[in-house]
């Protein structure tokens, strides 16, 4: 029995698959690949699969992570080629390795966000210069107002014509998570005009210690 972690891309129209559906889709892909998958023992054995960090519906990614277990050791390149042969268009395993960190070590994630609309860089600068950026968040006790400003780190920004490309680093994982769509929704609300979110791409997942999650 051996644990494996793959890093995979989720790009194109598979971005419309929810987290739950992705889970089912991966189970079937592993079953089709005929890799010697490990099943849980118990009354209803199921194929063991774990996603350390979920991705929101509509977002793409080049750094998704999935853990699974095989009953015997299989060479890395064979795992990759067999998985890639059985995965649907848009899902692609890039690398396979032994898990180094655990899900609870995840601290933040980076996103490239492309927005479309007139004068967006001006609006964005105004938006982000506010003292507080208050948004409503659904909690178990009902709606709660939170300030997301301290949670947003801007790592890059380019504007061309009506396109604004942002690189954002946001908290992720158990210790505090900010969904990137919360930021884009807040911005759309602030700008009070139609802004098209043309792309959200997760580019990196970091641990709390600053290292890439692997």
């Amino acid at each position: 029995m051996k644990d494996y972690r793959i890093t995979f891309e989720k790009r194109g129209r598979v971005k419309y698959i929810s987290h739950l559906d992705l889970n089912r889709c991966m189970i079937r892909a592993i079953r089709r690949s005929d890799l010697p998958a490990w099943y849980t023992e118990g009354f209803h054995p199921h194929l063991y699969l774990m996603f350390p960090l979920a991705l929101s519906l509509g977002a793409e990614s080049i750094c998704e992570v999935m853990d699974f277990r095989l009953t015997e050791e299989v060479p890395d390149d064979e795992i990759l080629s067999r998985l890639n042969a059985s995965m649907p268009e848009g899902l692609k395993a890039i690398s396979v390795h032994e898990p180094k960190y655990e899900a609870q070590h995840i601290g933040s994630a980076c996103y490239d966000v492309t927005l479309q609309g007139e004068n967006l860089s001006q609006f964005w600068n105004d938006f982000i210069s506010q003292e507080q950026i208050l948004t409503e968040k659904k909690t178990k006790k009902g709606m709660k107002t939170i300030d997301i400003k301290p949670m947003i780190t801007i790592e890059g920004m380019t504007a061309e014509n009506d396109n604004l490309c942002l690189s954002l680093r946001l908290p992720a994982g158990n210790e505090g998570n900010l969904n990137v769509t919360v930021v884009t929704d807040a911005f759309q609300k602030y700008a009070e005009k139609p802004i098209l979110v043309t792309k959200i791409l997760r580019t990196k997942i970091f641990c709390q210690n600053g290292e890439i999650f692997s």
């Binding site: 129209r13 598979v14 419309y16 929810s18 559906d21 519906l57 509509g58 649907p88 268009e89 098209l196």
Partner: peptide, 19 residues
């Protein structure tokens, strides 16, 4: 079509691309 898919429930009903 893709521009509007996030407005609707279960967008992958409309996006194809299945195995």
């Amino acid at each position: 079509i893709e521009q509007y898919l996030l407005e609707v429930q279960k967008p992958s009903r409309y996006s194809g691309g299945e195995v």
